[in-house]
């Protein structure tokens, strides 16, 4: 069994870009560890003949024909963007 520690929680929070309070970390660590424990139980089941499940619904994806159905709705779609210029969304500078 694997117990998550503080650094694991911090890494998960960073990857998900979540700001968390230092004081909550122990609780997150316990809860996340409990989830892993629950999933761990699967290891005691023989799943050799079970096909991997990609989706809980036992269906297949419907295919859309390759046709253009959307028209330009830029003004409407960008109306709630905090900042725009020349038809572009503006975001904090991404340094390459």
């Amino acid at each position: 069994m694997y117990t998550l520690d503080k650094s694991d929680v911090e890494k998960i929070a960073f990857l998900a870009r979540l700001g968390i309070d230092e004081q909550d970390i122990p609780e997150y660590a316990t809860n996340l560890t409990n989830i892993l424990d629950m999933v761990e139980q699967l290891n005691s089941v023989d799943t050799d003949d079970v096909k991997p499940m990609a989706h809980p619904l036992d269906g297949v994806q419907r295919l859309r024909p390759d046709e253009v159905t959307e028209t330009n709705d830029r003004e409407n779609l960008m109306a709630h963007a905090p900042e725009t210029e020349a038809g572009l969304f503006l975001v904090p500078r991404v340094v390459e």
């Binding site: 859309r64 046709e67 253009v68 959307e70 330009n72 830029r74 572009l88």
Partner: peptide, 26 residues
């Protein structure tokens, strides 16, 4: 393809910015 992989927006090259991006693409 004429349209996007998960939406019906056009894939034509060189259009004005964000005129071929629908709600799904955004």
């Amino acid at each position: 393809n004429k349209s996007k992989i998960f939406s019906g927006a056009s894939t034509a090259y060189g259009a004005e910015p964000n005129t071929q991006a629908c709600a799904v693409d955004m």
